[in-house]
Design a protein around this nucleic acid. Structure first.
Lengths: 188, 188
DNA sequence: GTCTATATGTAGATAGAC
DNA sequence: GTCTATCTACATATAGAC
């Protein structure tokens, strides 16, 4: 054949990774197949050599996103004692709010995932539970896992729907301080 | 004329209110003008008697959403002492998670608002700040206003991206307990 | 004010040349 | 494997009849 043995796989991976950024920036539904392909230097017609449908790309893209995010946020045995606190600070930053294309998938594609197929949502659930378990275990706090995740996702959404940078920083700051305080509270 | 004096205004209001539900359920970008009009028994052509563009409907719709939500959540002088706690419980409910069409706009259209015009985002910011102020004042807690809002929005997103009802309830329950605990914590 | 018909663009997806 | 060309559907928006 005219292409190397690994060419197809490489193209597919490039397509997924580039599409991840574009979808987080402009929305998945709001971006056409042609635009995804053009971003890696190809034309729309070649898309269907790699995926049976646009929906299949969405499923793949979301899986990659959550695999990447949860691994990064969960941390391993070598992580420092303040691992979660560090991740919270970087997640709840103005830089994150201003760059959806390289950030967490949930504040950008959350509603689109919510409308996706049960198969997609089941995989998302599996990844999120792993992250929740990691955080709850690390903090020895059953509720904190889900609660901290929710606080992160919600604060990012709020930070992005407001117009002024000042308010954006207020939201993120309030969120960070609130979480620090909560972790010191008695757990009835 | 063949129509009553108030007919146009009534049609416009019906269009906005019906569109609010549809957009929260299926997404605004994912719904065509024809679908919005068909839902109130009209055809697509009549849309432009009421709005100059689809984007103008979005702006109007979001404004109505936030006006309605913030008024409901903020509460007035007559509200009971546990007003915020009550609102948190109903917001963080499985019923809310399962019915986006009648629920809060932020967990459904948040990312679309984030990509909207500065004018739209400025109005959203104004409404949200009012709600934040109301909650912070009521709880005598500067950070709690934004933090509680973020917790609500994020928990709803998480609750909707998972597949099982069991996990959905875990997320919402953990969020509720976490907030109750946090309000009893010392504020540095 | 609403209708049908239509202009125009773009969407997802397929066919066949290379 | 990727290209161009194309099918079909549906998008936003407009024009003119009623």
């Amino acid at each position: 054949m005219r292409y190397s043995a690994t060419h197809k796989q490489e193209t597919r991976e490039k397509l997924i990774n580039t599409s991840r950024e574009i979808a987080k920036k402009d929305g998945f539904g709001g971006t056409g197949v042609d635009a995804f392909m053009k971003a890696i230097g190809l034309t729309g017609g070649a898309f269907y050599t790699h995926f049976e449908s646009k929906a299949e790309l969405f499923a793949e893209l979301v899986e990659h996103e959550l695999e990447f995010s949860t691994e990064m946020l969960a941390g391993d045995e070598d992580a420092p004692a303040d691992h979660v606190a560090r991740k919270l600070r970087s997640y709840l930053s103005s830089a994150h709010a201003l760059h959806p294309e390289t950030g967490c998938v949930l504040p950008t594609l959350g509603p689109e995932i919510a409308r996706a197929s049960p198969e997609v949502k089941a995989r998302v659930e599996k990844s999120l539970k792993r992250l929740r378990d990691a955080w709850s275990e690390r903090l020895d706090d059953d509720d904190a896992g889900w609660a901290l995740l929710a606080q992160c996702v919600g604060a990012l959404i709020l930070a992005r729907v407001v117009e002024s940078e000042r308010t954006r920083r207020e939201i993120l700051g309030a969120s960070r301080r609130f979480l620090e305080r909560a972790e010191k509270a008695p757990r009835k």
